[in-house]
Nucleic acid binder design. Sequence first.
DNA 1: TACTTGACACGAACGGCGTTCGTTAATAGA
DNA 2: TCTATTAACGAACGCCGTTCGTGTCAAGTA
Lengths: 240, 240
Amino acid sequence: MDPVPAPPWRKTRRARPVKPQLTQELIVQTGLRIVDHEGLDALSMRRVAQELDTGPASLYAHVANKDELLELIYERVLEEIELPAPEPGRWAEQLREAVFAQHAVFSRHADVARVSLANIPTGPNALRLAEGMMAIMVEGGVPPRAAAIAIDRIGQLVAADAHEGSLYRGMQRASGMESEEFVAEHFRQIEEYMRSLPADRFPYLARYADEMVKPSGDERFAFGLDLMIAGLAAQVPSAE
Amino acid sequence: MDPVPAPPWRKTRRARPVKPQLTQELIVQTGLRIVDHEGLDALSMRRVAQELDTGPASLYAHVANKDELLELIYERVLEEIELPAPEPGRWAEQLREAVFAQHAVFSRHADVARVSLANIPTGPNALRLAEGMMAIMVEGGVPPRAAAIAIDRIGQLVAADAHEGSLYRGMQRASGMESEEFVAEHFRQIEEYMRSLPADRFPYLARYADEMVKPSGDERFAFGLDLMIAGLAAQVPSAE
DNA sequence: TACTTGACACGAACGGCGTTCGTTAATAGA
DNA sequence: TCTATTAACGAACGCCGTTCGTGTCAAGTA
């Protein structure tokens, strides 16, 4: 279906608005859509170009390289995260809520989290989040030095956890099974394996296989976060 | 320099022990050496084959695919980690030491940590470590359920941290600078950037840029770990 | 109106990757 | 000594990120 040349009597102005003009914005949108629908591994310059009905070379006029594209996609996702204004009395709850909000956004865009692990985030939105969390903690009485490191550690926690989630999504995608039954089956296998270990060399694993396998991803995440927040609360001077 | 056919009067037995026989063991060793010296990104089936003076196809007789090779390399590294026998009175110190031991091993093999993040480790050595840490904690009085999740969370912490370290190593490798001056320069830039932010929109970052940037990687790691251990200690019944 | 310029678009190609196929060569067993 | 098995491997396939040189079209200039 080769394009027929436009008849000469038609005004040649606006010759091809048929294809939306290529912009960085459009490329980032398209990239994010691919990552969300098909996973990070499916994202390639060629795939994005194909989706936009052009060749890979065309993208490089708007994006320096694939790394920059990934960074732009990541920043776009961070934009979705909202932070509350500090209320000193309930800094711990606010911090917890803010972190869960981040967690939720990364759950929506599962594979994007892998990008945050692969780069040290310093874009404008990463700074906005750091500022907000710093405000909540410092106003709540957490020593600035502890708050500063805590932001780093919590960011790592969220990223690592979302990354893990994305791993399961990838395995499930590869297996072609339904999400729930796949994860259940996977954990069932691990538990069975642990129980089958020789009880003389692995007494604890065999005994507590249940405890090791059962907690859901969300429970594990909340557990780790609460450990950290509790430890942080112990460092608020008035609480000593 | 084509090989000259061996003279017929020489015993043809042991025709070519010149090249050591290809084994999985040898392939894993070679792979680990490449990862340690040139980074994970430099590891390819072709690179390993070249190092062993053969073609990439030859490797597939001993290793299913690249993922399996990575898993084998990872297991090999885990072998280096040693765990103490539990002494109930000082479970927290023992746990701390065990985790630092893991951290140290991953520092020696910086890029291998990225493998542990990309797979959910269930090999024999991963189980051995889980068993040992479970023993230390349960004998110390930590509730089994909390201990089980804590192992998961601490493992993630170590992996994420080593991953971050490997990131810096990669950036440094790419920049061609010396290790120390590069990291120092990088942090100097970030601090300067934070200080330059508009103080009305980023008051905390501008004010506490120092605290955010200064702590070393080891300090951050220890901080996060200690938060978790403190939180865990609070869950030991006798301590309530 | 005719010509120049500059930015965007893009086909083709380069060198790399993981993996597979079909063949060869060497070993071990009968 | 002949045969069955298996490790080794050259060549190729279909991907990838990226670059180069060319084409094309709109805006600016004379």
